[in-house]
Design a binder for these strands. Structure first.
Length: 576
DNA sequence: TCAGTTCGCGCG
DNA sequence: AAAGCGCGCGAACTGA
């Protein structure tokens, strides 16, 4: 270990710069890149002592050397690179070149190696059989540093070098090198996205919030009056229901509805909707809609506005879902309601525009690629809209009579049937979205018709059903291994959802390269959609660039199906 | 009392 | 044998 203070150490930097691999770890004073700072940067390299650099006690020339090193061409190994890269970027020490992330590597190996925890200590134990203590992990890195702290810091980075070696072997063994490169290349995009954040129109949000509160209050008053079981009791403070029903308790609501003679065995939306003609049920659904929106979004989202940047910096888990998709939290932008009133609150900053691009029917295109369904391939080649096609089938309308809502709804039917939704599921779906009862016969008929039209899909189902194993891969080679043979629905869905994730990750990685050096900001990604923010004057050019990049990324994995990306320049997220 | 699980529902 | 899949979140619920 070599602790670097004020003394010049350019010779060490020289050695490090000629090293192919650097394992880098940082110690920070906290978890927030705006409120907290990087204190130490530890750099390990094969055959060299670990360099521990105190950023708070370093000369300008050494700072410059470090900056060059981090921007240099060597492979940088991190554990959870996103975290360190965010801090280093915020400290104006950006990292370029190839990154190897031991955490992401372990996540790719998760199902193969049967690991469920991804802390450095967990991986050290699992892959190297080393037990390391973490007692200094949460120590105070803002004061005078002890020898123990420095040794702890040095140890982690040298551990990374050994860990990487084993992980590379494992990745190779399970043929995960390609997908690992995909994930690693995507890291800088995720870093940018989280640092950039999304701007919320707070005033507009609060107006919507007030509206929903009054809607909730109205529905609640009505329901409490109608569903009240006990007598209304007088209290000192006026007429109040002391033993009022809790409308959020499924148990209580179910009992109360049953008492009113509404035959139900649960209070789920799909059950309730069968009694929609009953005003009690209708108001209950209104109540649910308003209170769900309030508790899930209206109260929490504003609390995510960052005190320093004034923007919302969600946390993206790069391998958050077992199919390979991102998950998102704090807040989860992937579940903001589609309704205009919500999304129009997410806006571009002054003088900027949002460029919103989404893959058109990407999962269906992946299905077409995997199943070689002739009708689908043909439809895509002729640039037909398959959701619209299915919607027309379902409603017995002409293609051009299909409404936006019907088309939106048909999406679910397409996905449902492709992923082996049963007749009952289809019935339930029809009730939920159309509010119409679909007889079992009709659902059966429609299902049959669907597979008549898409015979290749039907064949693909048969093939997969008869031959799939515990190992399922996407087109990038991403592996999902099951303990037992998965359900057939998993075998249908995983390669499709996973390949779509591969494609958008490829696009994000490519996009960041294309945008480097510009003022264009990647700010969000929602499964098949990428949002960037650009100065108004560049918006149209950026829109073309974004579309082109995303389509190219699609072509990388889908060889026989054209990829289409819809893109638009907007002031807010609702204008699509 | 508290951690873990389930329900219900928002998105793709 | 039968089956849409994948998430996160908050409130309610469960178990010790």
């Amino acid at each position: 270990m070599f602790v670097m203070g004020k003394n010049k150490l350019s010779r060490y930097f020289y050695d490090l710069r000629h090293s192919k691999i650097l394992a880098i770890d940082t110690e920070t004073t906290g978890l927030d890149p705006w409120l907290h700072k990087v204190r130490l940067v530890q750099i390990a390299s094969p055959g060299l002592p670990v360099l521990v650099i105190d950023l708070w006690d370093i000369s300008q020339s050494d700072w410059n050397l470090l900056k060059n090193l981090l921007a240099g061409p060597s492979i940088k190994v991190f554990h959870n690179a996103k975290f360190d890269l965010k801090f280093l970027t915020a400290a104006n020490l950006p990292v370029y070149g190839q990154v190897f992330d031991t955490m992401l590597a372990a996540k790719l190996l998760r199902t193969a190696n049967g690991i469920y925890k991804y802390g450095l200590a967990d991986l050290a134990f699992h892959y190297l059989g080393e037990e390391i203590d973490k007692e200094h992990q949460n120590s105070d890195w803002s004061g005078r540093l002890t020898k123990e702290q420095l040794e702890y810091a040095a140890r982690d980075s040298s551990l990374l070098l050994r860990l990487r070696k084993t992980l590379v072997q494992e990745l190779r063994r399970y043929k995960l090198i390609e997908v690992a490169k995909l994930e690693f290349d995507c890291i800088p995009a995720v870093v940018e996205m989280e640092l950039n954040g999304f701007l919320l129109d707070r005033q507009r949000w609060d107006v919507l919030k007030a509206q929903l509160i009054s809607e909730q209050r109205e529905a609640s008053a009505y329901l409490k009056k109608e569903l009240q079981t006990g007598p209304v009791q007088l209290s000192l403070f006026g007429n109040q229901n002391v033993c009022a029903i809790n409308l959020k308790s499924p148990k209580q609501v179910l009992a109360a509805l049953q008492k009113k003679g509404i035959g139900l065995d649960n209070t789920s939306k799909s059950s309730l909707i069968t009694h929609i003609e009953n005003p009690l049920v209708k108001v209950l659904l209104d109540y649910r809609r308003a209170s769900k929106a309030l508790q899930a979004f209206m109260y929490s989202v504003p609390s995510c506005i960052h005190p320093v940047t004034g923007r919302i910096h969600s946390n993206y888990q790069q391998i958050g879902a077992s199919t390979g998709r991102f998950s998102c939290s704090g807040p989860n932008l992937q579940q903001i309601p589609r309704a205009k009133e919500f999304r129009e609150c997410f806006i571009a900053s002054q003088g900027h525009k949002l460029i919103i691009a989404d893959y058109s029917q990407i999962e269906l295109r992946v299905v077409a690629e995997l199943s070689r369904d002739k009708t689908m391939i043909e439809a895509f080649k002729k640039e037909q809209d398959i959701h619209r096609l299915t919607a027309a089938l379902l409603t017995n309308k002409n293609l051009d009579q299909v409404t936006k809502e019907e088309r939106q709804a048909a999406k679910a039917v397409n996905f449902g049937l492709i992923y082996a939704m049963g007749v009952k599921g289809l019935q339930a779906y029809a009730q939920e979205t159309y509010g119409v009862q679909m007889t079992e016969e009709k659902a059966q008929l429609f299902r049959a018709r669907f597979f008549e039209v898409y015979q290749g899909v039907s064949k693909w189902h048969q093939t997969v059903k008869s031959s799939y194993s515990r190992e399922i891969r996407t087109l990038s080679g991403r592996l999902r291994q099951y303990k037992q043979r998965p359900s057939v629905t998993g075998a249908y869905n995983t390669p499709v959802q996973g390949t779509s994730a591969d494609i958008i990750k490829k696009a994000m990685a490519m996009l960041l390269e294309v945008l480097s050096g510009t003022k264009v900001k990647l700010i969000a990604t929602i499964h098949d959609e990428i949002i960037v923010e650009a100065p108004e004057k560049q918006a149209i050019r950026v829109a073309e660039l974004l579309k082109e990049t995303m389509e190219q990324a699609g072509t990388f994995y889908l060889k026989s199906i054209p990829i289409v990306v819809d893109v638009g320049v907007h002031d807010n997220w609702a204008e699509k």
